[in-house]
Write a protein that binds this DNA or RNA. Sequence first.
DNA 1: CATTTTTGTTAGGTACGGCTAACTAAGTTA
DNA 2: TAACTTAGTTAGCCGTACCTAACAAAAATG
Lengths: 223, 223
Amino acid sequence: MNDLNFLRLIFELGGSFQNVNNIDLAIKANVSKASVSDRTQHLSKLGLVKYKKYYGSKLTKKGLNAVIPLVQQHRLLETWLYEKLDIPLSDVYDKASTLCEKPDLLLIDRLNTYLDYPQNCPHGNVIPINTPVPEFSKYDLLSNQSISTSTFKIINFTEDDNLFKILSNIDIKLGDELQILNINDYDHSMVVLNRRNNLKQILPKNITKMIRIETVLSKEKSV
Amino acid sequence: MNDLNFLRLIFELGGSFQNVNNIDLAIKANVSKASVSDRTQHLSKLGLVKYKKYYGSKLTKKGLNAVIPLVQQHRLLETWLYEKLDIPLSDVYDKASTLCEKPDLLLIDRLNTYLDYPQNCPHGNVIPINTPVPEFSKYDLLSNQSISTSTFKIINFTEDDNLFKILSNIDIKLGDELQILNINDYDHSMVVLNRRNNLKQILPKNITKMIRIETVLSKEKSV
DNA sequence: CATTTTTGTTAGGTACGGCTAACTAAGTTA
DNA sequence: TAACTTAGTTAGCCGTACCTAACAAAAATG
């Protein structure tokens, strides 16, 4: 994987506004933690990430400027694959990644014209330049919520085809509203009720960490 | 460049039916002749090309089977870039190449549906599987023709964006009919008359080698 | 047909992007 | 706070994909 695509992974883990740790990057890139350590130190020397040993990586202005067009192209390609070519949602991330070795400004421009300047990719993530990139706090993750009568609306997913394969099997979609019925102390898995189909599901922590939500106040409380 | 894409270059130089020499490959791949020599010997060990030292490379059955989907995907992407995204003809080869790291059968299938099973890419080359790949003899190249009153119709171009940039500047297109008025012994450049616009042009040998034609008998003779 | 030019090969080197194994720092918990 | 777990680093290694320079074979030419 080239440096720019590695920066894209950092971006996808929130590296534009927070430190990203090496283990998460290693999982995302599917390489060893040693490789990640080498890489982040290398990118730091190039001034593309701010990096302090043992404390993770965050994109610099320079790194962000370099990677934004690539993220944009990647998400436009996802939108194209999903909307025009009918590729299943669970496949679009990986396929867009192999198509996305480097950014091409003309291609980005024409994709935008063709797709009519979409604001979000099929996973719910914003397409940069078309839309400003929001800063999410870690409290927006489903994994950080607690039991309540409120519901949590799914506003996006971490870009990961594996996650999508699992979610499509258990019928959880972008926009669904979930209520947390129980949290298992032992492994932090959650029992959630999906308001759309009234199904109860157990979601392990590795899944809840990849779902970003916004709180919807319960009707009882808002009245 | 990965092995499969290197096989694609061999294919594009006619490697499915004739030996391809290392210098042509080196120019096409934009690497040194030493690298090409290493590569062809390596591909030979893998059984993907038939290769005899000093005599060039030809694809084996195995190599052909491996590369056909990649060629198909590449030419479908070219068609998409040209027809749907309005990317200039002179850019589609290189852009399709960077999008085409490896073949993806689902993507190929959906592109075919979307583009309605095109038979030719914008350069005039057939899209394999959609259409059988023809075997051209070297006599189909414009560079191998001689002065006559016959005209030669351009039926395809070697896949090369550089060629296309040059040809678009001098207004020579797929389907044009050329008559050879003169051939310069010294450098084998040709003076041709383009029947479509009645312009005379000098074409150097490196250009005439990249234009494949079919003979159109002159009207005088066919009467 | 001897010479020159073109084409191809070999040897040896570099940079990159990975790896494992051993070790160390930081964080967690009894 | 000592012990343990998790995360991160370092050292040293490997394969790939290139490179240049020197040499060798084949082809073209006077």
